[in-house]
Design a protein around this nucleic acid. Sequence first.
DNA 1: ACTTATTTGTTCGTATGTATG
DNA 2: TCATACATACGAACAAATAAG
Lengths: 228, 228
Amino acid sequence: LRLEVVEGIKAYILRNNLRSGDLLPTEPALCAALGASRSSVREAIRVLAALDIVTVRHGHGTYVGRLSLSALLESLTFRGLLSADGDLALLDLIEVRELFERGMADRLVGALGEEQISSLEELVDDMSKSGGKDGEGFVEADRAFHALLVAPLGNDLISQLSEVFWDVYAIVAPQLGVFTDEHEASTVASHRRIVNALRNRDAVEFSAALTEHYAPVRSRIAQVRATS
Amino acid sequence: LRLEVVEGIKAYILRNNLRSGDLLPTEPALCAALGASRSSVREAIRVLAALDIVTVRHGHGTYVGRLSLSALLESLTFRGLLSADGDLALLDLIEVRELFERGMADRLVGALGEEQISSLEELVDDMSKSGGKDGEGFVEADRAFHALLVAPLGNDLISQLSEVFWDVYAIVAPQLGVFTDEHEASTVASHRRIVNALRNRDAVEFSAALTEHYAPVRSRIAQVRATS
DNA sequence: ACTTATTTGTTCGTATGTATG
DNA sequence: TCATACATACGAACAAATAAG
């Protein structure tokens, strides 16, 4: 029955052509419309909220959600933390991230504008400056760098997936003893090499730079994997 | 408070090193352990069930879930159905599927064994035979084909993501008027070309075959996009 | 086949916290 | 300050499914 309520609310949204942020009926109204009790409706709303299909604001009401990939984020992080071999899951994750960025090499070197390349370079400068003391700023710049890298593709799905994978890695890696703040110098260097390859519109060099970037990450994971 | 309960249950699983299929405490036991009412515990369990972190069996108990990507499937399908331009979401989807298969071309032509290539060929034969009359068997063979294609990579994440994207496309495309059962002949032909490229260990031809395979899909989506 | 115990599923009533006006 | 509307939380009761004797 709860499944019916979930489908009922989804159907309501589709039937009325609601968009993100639109207001949904109140819980009592949904109870009446779907013929279910308050508890059942609430449980259904919790499920839809977990999928970011609806967003609930206490004392305000229930709204259509942003349809983000937050559920994938939670799901993958927990998998990484639970897995007997979370390190293997991390390797899979890194492989996908590299695949996204390398697979779009040809299109990226063409799509990136000069101002975007400059933005990337500024981020590398930020990483360089915040190295050592400001670990917070370092990882934040890295996150922004990889987000900006795939943004010009104009593919929202790739951008969002890429972002989720970065976040999952940032959460899971430290728990496994894979620290990202080592080898900061080499990380900055490989990022700079990536930017230069983009500036020269050299797809082959771009791919090589990405290989160099992810190689130490892989070896660090393999290292943890061997000692466990 | 419900957030606390959700985190509490996740922490319980991690703390006790539970694996998929292991039994969790009963709802009353969780109430006592987490200091919350049954309603709150139930809502938390529904959230975790939506993420496939737990699985509930009526009259039996609550177990650790399979940690699948079912939440992503639901989330993406609803996004495709809701979006004002669900066709654009479909294009993004196809692009990622093509990226997965093309990006791994080099590794795939090396990793695929002879018996796996034969399995792929059998699936193409199935598609060829079930064309026209048996639409059900046709799409099922197509699904199996693309699953088998990325399986040898040994990357569970890619396999599962690939599967989810195929499923989402299969659900959303018909709703948008993009029918996959047209051009069956050309679909079979491009699949056969993919198999032959793999048999000849020709990565370049493999990529070209994939381009040929996805080109009509894209044009069909673009067609729908233009008429709306 | 039947009963009993256990566990989740569903409902209702009530009280509380929160935002708007 | 008060009133209204809404989500949040609790507890008790009954129904339904499953397993074991």
